[in-house]
Design a binder for these strands. Sequence first.
DNA 1: ACTAAGCTGTGAAAGTCGTAACAGCGATGC
DNA 2: GCATCGCTGTTACGACTTTCACAGCTTAGT
Lengths: 214, 214
Amino acid sequence: MPLTSHKTIGRLSLYRRLLMELTAERATNVYSHELASLAGVTAAQVRRDLMAIGYSGSPSRGYEVRELTGAIGRFLDDPTGQNVALVGVGNLGRAILAYFSGRRPNLRIVAAFDRDPYKVNRVIHGCRCYRLADLPEVARELDIHMGIIAVPASEAQDVAEMLSRAGVNGLLNFAPTSLRVGPQVYVEDIDITTSLEKVAYFARETAMKKEAKP
Amino acid sequence: MPLTSHKTIGRLSLYRRLLMELTAERATNVYSHELASLAGVTAAQVRRDLMAIGYSGSPSRGYEVRELTGAIGRFLDDPTGQNVALVGVGNLGRAILAYFSGRRPNLRIVAAFDRDPYKVNRVIHGCRCYRLADLPEVARELDIHMGIIAVPASEAQDVAEMLSRAGVNGLLNFAPTSLRVGPQVYVEDIDITTSLEKVAYFARETAMKKEAKP
DNA sequence: ACTAAGCTGTGAAAGTCGTAACAGCGATGC
DNA sequence: GCATCGCTGTTACGACTTTCACAGCTTAGT
């Protein structure tokens, strides 16, 4: 029933990471404005986001770091963890494998897939690479319900359909294409080229502003 | 004075890429609903976005692909092109270099930087790697005003400050940290971990919905 | 005991963004 | 020539986000 917005979910994930750092620094409690400052948002935003998960702090001590971390975890995570497939073991795919290798115990990349026969059956950053054609079978065997697409744009739609048919409910898509999938699949796009072009545009704009100011 | 929103800029970049594909397919004109379908948005959105750049189509023929591509380019790009520095030549950094190598003529990654002496002075995917300590000097010599941060979170803030002092106006940040920089620097964050956790959450949610339905 | 200070939780205002709807125009067919 | 059709440009509306502002609570100090 908690119709929590996309943006809030993203920030909760961020808060949790910051809270883990705070735990490492031996902090036991934190105020909304401190967490806000670390996250780069306003204090009111933090409080409103935490409303969504129903966790209450104390007016005098703020939030208990350990408890809040747990509350966010119970809200965001599946208790048994979720298995993820990576499709496309090129430069980007390998970087993703390296990045997530053993990082999040609840989000495990348990299989990689590629067309290239040279990569198949090799183990890369602790993850075995399978033939792309075996995806349906392997996905069912390993109980995979999430996919990361790191293939060229031209192949992304085909891969998305394969994953969808294999029972995947969520996709993280690095290919610069808008995927067409059914409503049972949530898609999050990361478009590096577009992001860089946004930076280029706004860098130019702020540079102009600075020039015009004095 | 075009106070164009962030989201619109992102979509313009996307439209341009789609228009280039259309050009490759010998299409000469396109209707808003066609472009919308390719981009995964509504036709009204496309028309509204194009309002921002002041390009007008024809009621009968829609938009001329070639002219519209040019108009978006004049709006988004710097006529002389912009030079970009990449900081951090790890797995992700190399993937980014490979990805952009000679792709966008207007957005050139002209230098890479890393602490690791083993990487310094090597040429990776056509880009020379410099000592991180030489960043200020090289950035000025090569007229660099944009940076891509692909270093671990613990070093990201230091790198951002170095780049900012070297005259950079825009940053694309892959480190999971919110950077503190002055108002003359635009920052765009790409947080892969958070994106994956969002997918995990919504995948779970849609899976539950499907289960509850029948 | 009582005041003062500082934080949380939350209703309401402000702002942002996307969508619907329609007037206007150019082409086409009769 | 005139009506019709389909698409564009634009305005108005609605949905969603963020921020503001304040009541309520809890502790510390006098």
